[in-house]
Amino acid sequence: MEELKNKVRELLKAGTVQAVIGYRAGSDEKTARVAFVRQPDEADGLILDPRCTDNLAVYLLKPEVKLLGKLAIVARPTTARTILQLASENQLADGQVIVLGVSADGKAVVELASFEALEKFVGQVPAGLTEEEKVLLAKIEGMSREERWAFWQSEFARCIKCYACRAACPMCYCSRCIVESNQPQWIPVSPHDEGNLEWHLVRAMHLAGRCLNCGFCAKACPMGIPLNLLTQRLAEEAKAAFGAVAGGSATGEYALSMFKADDKEGFIR
């Protein structure tokens, strides 16, 4: 922990960066929230413990955060993968952000100034679903079609279209989301069942092959909808069908921007 704080102080003192994005304690003991550290002495308030699960990369592209100057960011492996994925989508340039990579056990902190270093860092940590996540997915996949429909309908029925899932997602960086497009109005504005279903499917499809499975969307949902299951399902499918895994490299290819002539499917007549 002291290692991180020292590193942050150092970077700010030397003027290498103007702000560091990290975690600080939340309003109760169970939560952590984002900290934008701009003075060396503010580093004292930083924390790094199991509460710190948010994917801080979401802040990197916010215009008001960009105004702070050059940034460093505390990044667990998932966040680091997010940064590489954003780079592959031309949203971050090499050297634009200094990453303070936190090892999986949360103890060691390494300064990663280039994408190359970042790629090595994430390469050491296996990507993919946890065993618990796989079990949950398998449970839904194991349902009958009608049960799955009923399950999701009961989940989506709670959606209030607050778009917290979108705001929390570092990959949802469009300046105009499809839901705000009104010529045509692809997705109805009001939170009724048809629009809710469409929103959640379109969100999942837009993240297909791009999602880093940070789970921030589901965590942000005030109605407790497990909507990360949808993106997880697609990440699994992209991996199985095309061998595509997001976030491995700053020059990685998007699964839907490319193809193989012998891509396999079993349903086209």
Binding site: E89, N90, Y173, C174, S175, R176, Y254
Partner: peptide, 19 residues
């Protein structure tokens, strides 16, 4: 093309470029 400050709703991900 849209009005400033957006100029275009394109965010420049350039995933279309490769496709």
């Amino acid at each position: 093309r849209t009005a400033p400050p957006l100029f275009s709703t394109c965010v420049g991900c350039f995933l279309c470029e490769k496709a």
